[in-house]
Amino acid sequence: MSASVRLEAITQSFARRGRRRAALSGVSLDIEAGEFVTVVGPSGCGKSTLLDLVAGHTRPQRGSVTVDGVAVSGPGPERMIVFQEHALFPWLSVQANVEFGLRSAGVDPASRAGTAHAWIARVGLADAAHLHPHELSGGMRQRAALARALALAPQVLLMDEPFSALDAPSRDRLHVELQDLWRETGTTIIFVTHNVREAVVLGDRVIVMSSGPGRIMGEVSVTLPRPRVVESGRVVDLAQQVRGLLDEADQMGIAAPREGQDGYVTI
């Protein structure tokens, strides 16, 4: 189950402290059904805004967002978002968190429990189903959040830097598992990150964005066999190429902040 996503000439700005700040300017993007697309760029390049638009949390000022040809008019269970911070409900156990969306969708209690259980087991949390989010490690929380999103069988899975707060070993393991989950479910994934190697490891296509205001600088298609890992030499080579695109943006006078500065890009 998957859907195509089409963004056309999106322009979006926010009022912050009384001044309007452009977040996205003339962004167009075509994503095929079942594609795994990663979006990389410095903080403040409008990556998260892009996901918000597809998720239906915000509406574009100009341009249009369509999923399978239908204009997005609000949040919907066919478009799930996994946040940077797990966003699990702290008063519910992992089991109840995963069942939450199923209950909203009107699934009856018995099959709700079954579906939730299956997804919890699939992400490797079978023994932790009865625990509350605060009793889990960071990696386990993101697994639970992933199970909660996938339990609703979304056609599009939106991921907003979901692994950026994790330690490297957990992140590497989740990279491999996410590629497996994607292959099994066939869902369209839009994965936003500021980590260039992560983008190359995960995506069929890496979209490179620049900030101030956010626009698409170019894209790099990745045809390496899966599952990929960050240490692979070819991943590192491609990451250099993506890095080059970000550097170009820098030379054009478009800010792609450097390491040590606000919103730098890691490689």
């Binding site: 998720a55 949390h57 949040p75 919907g76 269970p77 478009r79 799930m80 978002i81 946040f83 911070e85 966003a87 699990l88 409900f89 939450f100 969306g101 909203s104 969708a105 909660r148 609703l152």
Partner: peptide, 16 residues
């Protein structure tokens, strides 16, 4: 606000 966004994403709105 993140919890509200998560709730909306999962299909809840209004009274529920």
């Amino acid at each position: 606000p993140l919890l509200l966004r998560a709730g909306r994403t999962l299909g809840e709105r209004g009274t529920s």
